[in-house]
Amino acid sequence: MNADQPLTRDQMAEVVARDIPAGSYVNLGIGQPTKVANYLRPDQGVILHTENGMLGMGPEAHGDEVDHDLVNAGKIPVTQTPGCSFFHHADSFAMMRGGHLDVCVLGAYQVSATGDLANWHTGRPEDIPAVGGAMDLAVGAKRTAVLMSLLTRDGQSKLVEQCSYPLTGVGCVSRVYTDYATFLIEPDGVHVRETYGVDFADLQQMVGAVRLIDRTAA
């Protein structure tokens, strides 16, 4: 969709969901990536993995469905689907680290033009760091995608030449879904697949130093 307006958070999640190949095993990170699940079609046959030991995770649980022994990585109660399975943490992370997951979708503070990811720590000394499964997911999935707003609150591009925040993984991101564009990070540079509410020239100006390759006509 080359939209006339920047995408809303829900529309961004929809774009990500549409891009996930049928039958994929997928891990959705905490926060905004969780929304992607709302836009997966049943006929897509996607199986969701949660790092705390489950394949075949269903939607969030409500009311009588809530079971305190059944939660997602964000510790929110969820449901199970037919054919789901439970396993311990070493097996769960072997699924990530061993390259068995097809796609993971993560949030980010910054992504570099070569696919470096920064999403776990602000680096501010007063902040208590917490990493969780971010570093395992970033380097382990067959495809690591990022879902984020393109700009910070003060208008700086989060797609950067070099990350200034502490890294989560090196050269691991291959797609970046944002409100203004979808980017493909490839060996020859950053390609723009679609833009939303801006044209390619506007977008190039927004990201500044990162040189973009226009593929919007393709």
Binding site: S92, F93, M96, R97, D136, G169
Partner: peptide
């Protein structure tokens, strides 16, 4: 602070008598 998969695998390694292992997780990070 330990990446979660390293935490799990380091615990698993102890249980299996493994003296250490090489993992890509965390490479190039603080």
């Amino acid at each position: 602070l330990v990446p979660q998969g390293n935490l799990a695998e380091r615990i698993r390694a102890a249980s299996a008598g493994i003296g250490g292992f090489f993992t890509p997780t965390g490479y190039g990070t603080m």
